[in-house]
Design a protein around this nucleic acid. Structure first.
Length: 260
DNA sequence: AAACGATCCAACCGCCATGCT
DNA sequence: GAGCATGGCGGTTGGATCGTT
């Protein structure tokens, strides 16, 4: 707001980069490394603004960039990461070596969005796109979909919504969040031990300080395990979550499970 | 072959976060 | 703490390409 432009627009080129400009930029960075982007164009003899140079280098000229189509594994990883991180493209790109945030953003908008819609999943919320009644039922179980174990149980246990419940929903416009309506649709066998973020369950070693010392490790939930990119503790294989070493783990999503 | 619409993707723009003075 | 410079990010745009009629 009210900031001066990053460069003098009157003296800079815009639009597609020429081969010669690319070569100049690459040669300069090879010789001097990535430094001050603002002064780089002048030093490299480029009529470009520093931002433009940075973008060109980061998204196209960097030697470690991976070219070519995204693999199915990359697709799935992007979907999972997006479910957790949202539109934090740079963070997502950080988990995909050789891919840029811009590339992933474009790929998301052009391919994955469509793929998820074809699966009946809302690409923004990662929740199923169902009938109005189904959506209303989901709204009444908002936290359930955040935990894979809970969502699996939900998927398995969820009966067709009772007609009476649906009627009562439509009667009040679906805006009711009162206990009575919630009870009508509740799945009695579900364990809603929801604890994304700081845990709320009382662990065996629970003390006033143990909670504040815990952190949530999302690596495992994203399909990474200790010894891979995640350097966190291996989760307890018999438990859905584990609080070893002060970390909480969540199992990766199974087929048919969704991240909210 | 031409016209048109759909799709893709590189690049731009504006804003925010951070570091420095 | 205020103000400024810079890097970085996410949303959007527009030209190029592809597919269909």
């Amino acid at each position: 707001m009210g900031r001066s432009p990053c460069c003098e627009k009157a003296h800079t080129n815009k639009g597609a980069w020429t081969k010669e400009e690319d070569e100049r930029l690459v040669a300069y960075i090879r010789a001097h490394g990535e430094g001050c982007w603002r002064s780089l164009p002048k030093a490299a003899g480029l009529l470009r603004c520093g931002k433009s140079c940075r973008l060109r280098w980061m998204n196209y000229l960097r030697p470690d960039l991976k070219r070519g189509n995204f693999t199915d594994d990359e697709d799935e990883l992007i979907i999972r990461l997006h479910g957790v991180l949202g539109n934090k493209w740079s963070l997502i790109a950080g988990q995909l070596p050789g891919r840029t945030d811009n590339e992933i953003k474009n790929y998301w908008n052009t391919h994955i969005k469509r793929k998820l819609l074809a699966r009946g999943i809302d690409p923004q919320t990662h929740r199923p796109i169902g009938t109005a009644a189904e959506s209303a039922a989901l709204l009444l179980q908002p936290a359930m979909m955040t935990l894979p174990s809970a969502s699996a149980a939900f998927a398995a246990a969820r009966p067709p919504p009772p007609a009476a419940a649906l009627e009562s929903l439509s009667d009040d416009g679906g805006s009711s969040s009162g206990a009575s309506t919630g009870e009508t649709l509740r799945c009695p066998d579900l364990n809603l031990d929801l604890s994304v973020g700081l845990p709320t369950t009382a662990a065996a070693d629970d003390t006033p300080t143990s909670h504040s010392q815990r952190a949530v490790c999302l690596c495992y939930r994203l399909g990474l395990r200790a010894g891979e990119a995640c350097g966190c503790q291996q989760p307890d294989s018999s438990a859905t979550t584990s609080s070893q070493q002060g970390f909480m783990y969540f199992r990766p999503l199974e087929q048919g499970q969704y991240i909210r």
